[in-house]
Design a protein around this nucleic acid. Structure first.
Lengths: 195, 195
DNA sequence: TTCAACAAAACGAGCGCTCTTTTTATTATA
DNA sequence: TATAATAAAAAGAGCGCTCGTTTTGTTGAA
């Protein structure tokens, strides 16, 4: 939620760190580098964040909340369960396209290496939200009755996989072109009433 | 390929590092810790590996080769394409159960953070091998004709997702019980002749 | 004059790694 | 088989450096 950051210095740090943490890893980005690249002094950094770890927490909280909100509105706008799946794919792909670093930080970074006690990303708020959504749709009979582990893996697995291919640089194309065909495949695996 | 390591010291380092690198991250495991935990001196470590990075490379090469071999034999033993998919799932789940650290190191660790020039894991030998296999089966008409990105994501995405749930500690159960239902879901998404 | 906001030097801990010394294993010679 | 000569392996103190952090100093607005 960059728009929530009022402090200009904080925003500078946010914008730089989310890029570099995602690209080079938390341990490979020192305070001195952050200072140099943002043009801020170490004093300014430590005035705004009491530790390097706090920066990482701030990024984590901001990024997961942003993703959560995007998913929430995507699901709410959908008229039915199947439509919602397509919306989730679409919004995640869209987000990856317009803010690759943020998605890298959310999906790709091993937060537990430097954020003690952080929940694994699949237990973070956005993913828990999706899980509850899937559970509901199974109860309603929209999706086939299957183990939650299986259902969520069949749905989220392929989506995350495609995003990671993009993040790894394997995929050069715009992800949006994959929304439709991926959706078709996923639906076949979980939808009750075969199309 | 632990059985290939003749040197006892190297094996000690291998066994310890693959655990600790996977658990705490490469940067959080220093030479002194490796020395302390293995009972070896820093001299002994540097006599066997010319740098800390070389240890990581050794782990990477050994681990990916082991996975590759397991997948190769699994595919070769299978009588048809669909059977092969189940074998791949089974062998990866099996490997996760019996050597969680190794799979964590292969699938979970961000190698590019400390191994310069390493290919992303989805471009490593085991995964390239699977990709070629899928391509063949599409040409043969076993799987539906679809973009390779879509096909491999629909197949590998859910498998990797389940393994990651296990690695994150979300899944406590033996993965083998998920082989069958996951296979059924995946097949529906890519198989040509609907069952 | 006070204080928020930042600048920048300095601190101690810990890092990867090297170097010299010591121990252990291997080989050659009688 | 015993012993001297050599090589391989391991030990561990210490070096130079970078890290996250702290401390002290400066500046401009209220």
């Amino acid at each position: 939620m960059k728009e929530k950051i009022k402090n200009l210095t904080k925003e500078k740090i946010f914008n730089y760190c989310i890029k570099d943490f995602a690209k080079n890893g938390y341990s490979n980005v020192g305070i001195r580098k952050i200072s140099k690249e943002t043009g801020l002094s170490t004093g300014a950094i430590y005035y705004n964040f009491s530790s390097k770890e706090k920066i990482a927490w701030f990024l984590y909280d901001s990024a997961t909340e942003l993703v959560l909100n995007k998913i929430k509105t995507a699901i709410k706008k959908s008229t039915n369960g199947i439509e919602a799946i397509k919306s989730i794919i679409s919004v995640l792909f869209q987000l990856t396209e317009e803010n690759l670093h943020l998605m890298e930080y959310v999906l790709y970074v091993k937060h537990k290496d430097f954020l003690p006690g952080v929940p694994p990303i699949c237990s973070s708020k956005p993913f828990e939200y999706i899980k509850r959504f899937i559970k509901t749709k199974i109860k309603e009979g929209v999706f086939e009755d299957m183990d939650m582990v299986i259902a969520s893996s069949l749905i989220m697995g392929p989506i995350i996989r495609v995003i990671q291919l993009k993040m790894d640089g394997i995929l050069k194309e715009d992800l949006n072109k994959y929304t439709e065909p991926l959706f078709n495949g996923i639906v076949k695996s979980v939808y009750r009433n075969q199309i």
